[in-house]
């Protein structure tokens, strides 16, 4: 909690649900999403600064705060965000492989190779 947050409550009452087998994973998800949010905000700010540098040179803070994006730029940003999600969440919800399954797959491949090499 930052000093600015100390006098007001940001937290929901009650216990959080557990979705994963370990509470560590649930906590990591929160950290991941907050990090992504901060990354997104930083990326957006860099874009704003780039626009300012390219278009007008050095700006005041007030001028920087008032920069507006066009509808096309907003649409591009939205698409970039969807691509970001697709990258970050690509491993979620897809089938995973156990070590035993992987070993069996290696053994199977080994067997096929042997057969080919040793008729």
């Amino acid at each position: 909690m930052t000093s600015a947050d100390q006098n007001f409550n940001l937290n929901t009452r009650g216990k959080r649900p557990a979705f994963f087998a370990s509470s560590e994973t649930d906590a990591l998800m929160t950290a991941l999403l907050e990090t992504m949010s901060q990354l997104w905000a930083t990326r957006a700010q860099v874009n704003l600064l780039q626009k300012a540098l390219i278009g007008k040179g050095l700006l005041t803070a007030e001028e920087l705060e008032n920069i507006q994006r066009s509808d096309n730029e907003k649409a591009d940003e939205h698409q970039a965000m969807q691509n970001f999600f697709a990258d970050a969440f690509r491993s979620m919800g897809v089938p995973t492989q156990s070590l035993a399954s992987r070993k069996k797959e290696i053994d199977d491949l080994q067997g096929e190779t042997k057969n080919e090499a040793d008729p």
């Binding site: 999403l33 949010s37 997104w40 905000a41 704003l48 965000m81 969807q82 999600f85 969440f89």
Partner: peptide
């Protein structure tokens, strides 16, 4: 601008979750 970007992120994330995911 930082708060707006974070709000955009959450809004976009919800759109992604409730449609794609």
């Amino acid at each position: 601008t930082e708060q707006q970007s974070k709000q955009d992120f959450v809004s976009g994330l919800r759109g992604f979750l409730l449609n794609d995911m």
